[in-house]
Deep mutational scan, measured.
Amino acid sequence: MDETGKELVLALYDYQEKSPREVTMKKGDILTLLNSTNKDSWKVEVKITVNGKTYERQGFVPAAYVKKL
């Protein structure tokens, strides 16, 4: 869990989004878990840094590609 009590997951593999509802992640990324009720895909939040500014983006990733921490 992070400092706000949200559950975290670790990306086990790289994943490139295939639709606007998904998010891209790299192996080793730590993501905030938002919903894990679907056995196939979990909703997560990723933090992306562009030019020194951090943005948050929500979307789905394959459940088999992440592990709860």
Rank of each mutant, 00 (worst) to 15 (best):
M25C: 05
P62E: 03
T4R: 12
L8C: 15
T49K: 09
A64N: 12
V9K: 00
A63V: 05
V44P: 00
Q16I: 14
N35W: 06
V23S: 02
P20A: 11
N35T: 06
K68I: 13
E7L: 11
D29M: 13
A64D: 10
K47F: 09
K6M: 11
F60C: 15
K68N: 05
K27P: 02
E17Q: 13
E22A: 07
L69A: 03
V44T: 00
A63Y: 03
E17K: 13
T32Y: 10
V23L: 11
L10E: 10
N51I: 03
Y55N: 04
P62W: 07
D14G: 04
G5V: 14
F60D: 03
A63I: 05
F60E: 04
L31Y: 09
A11G: 02
G28L: 03
K27I: 05
Y65Q: 04
L12D: 01
G28S: 02
G28W: 06
E7P: 10
G59H: 02
L69E: 01
N38M: 09
K6S: 10
D2Q: 13
S36Y: 07
K18F: 05
M25Q: 02
P62R: 05
Y65E: 01
D40I: 12
K47P: 04
T4L: 12
V66A: 02
E17T: 08
D29W: 14
K68L: 14
V23F: 11
G5M: 12
S19N: 14
D14R: 02
K68C: 10
L69D: 01
Y55T: 10
Y13Q: 12
E17Y: 04
K68D: 02
L31F: 06
G59K: 00
Y65D: 02
T32I: 15
R21T: 13
V50L: 11
K68H: 07
V66M: 06
P20E: 11
K26N: 08
E7F: 11
K53F: 13
G5W: 12
L34E: 01
N38G: 09
L12M: 08
K6V: 13
D40G: 08
Q58N: 06
K26P: 01
V61S: 01
N35F: 06
Y55H: 08
T37V: 09
K43N: 04
F60P: 00
L8S: 06
K27Y: 04
Q58K: 07
D14A: 05
E17W: 07
E17M: 12
K27R: 11
S36V: 05
T37Q: 11
L31I: 06
D14V: 05
G59F: 08
G28A: 02
T24Q: 04
D2Y: 13
K18N: 09
